[in-house]
């Protein structure tokens, strides 16, 4: 039995109602887990892309890929983990911005190339994008200052094109 690994799977699916629940139902019905999931239309309005992150050993991931392929509305299943790919997540983080912490927040924002997208007397809202490790690092630092609330996306990902 191989070790559990995180896999990012990209699906091209028919842009129809019910497709997402077919995917979600497959995962819940067969006891596979979904760590995150993102859906949006592609350039072709008939198709959507679902990016989902899951975890499992080789046998489970093989089943997940095959079962996804079997769903009628799924056009293409790409397990990006087997290739070179870029992956991003985004988080909006509302931090307590007391007078004495503002400089510190700005420094963190600068280091991680984030943006401040909303400012009020008591709070700054920080927009961060990057890998899940990067987001985790930012959260870790800002937590010490005081986070009021956060909203995060799941991962979105695309395969890298050949360099030559």
């Amino acid at each position: 039995m191989t070790e559990e690994r995180k896999h990012t799977i990209s699906l091209l699916v028919d842009n129809e109602s019910g497709v997402l629940s077919r995917v979600a139902g497959l995962f819940s019905g067969r006891g596979f887990n979904i760590e995150s999931l993102c859906v949006a239309e592609t350039l072709d309005p008939a198709l959507s892309r679902i990016t989902l992150v899951t975890r499992g050993n080789e046998r489970i991931i093989e089943q997940i890929n095959k079962q996804l392929n079997k769903l009628i509305n799924i056009r293409k299943v790409i397990d990006l983990t087997e290739t070179e790919f870029v992956e991003r997540e985004m988080a909006l983080i509302k931090v307590r911005a007391k007078e004495e912490h503002r400089a510190e927040i700005l420094r963190i924002v600068d280091i991680f190339r984030c943006k401040i997208v909303d400012v009020s007397p008591a709070y700054y809202t920080v927009e961060a994008t990057g890998s899940d490790e990067k987001i985790a690092a930012i959260l870790n630092l800002l937590k010490q200052i005081g986070i009021k609330e956060i909203a995060r996306t799941g991962a979105i990902a695309l395969a890298r094109e050949a360099k030559k």
Partner: peptide
């Protein structure tokens, strides 16, 4: 359609 999703081929 929702009820039979997991027990139909499609």
């Amino acid at each position: 359609v929702g009820i039979t999703r997991p027990c139909t081929k499609h």
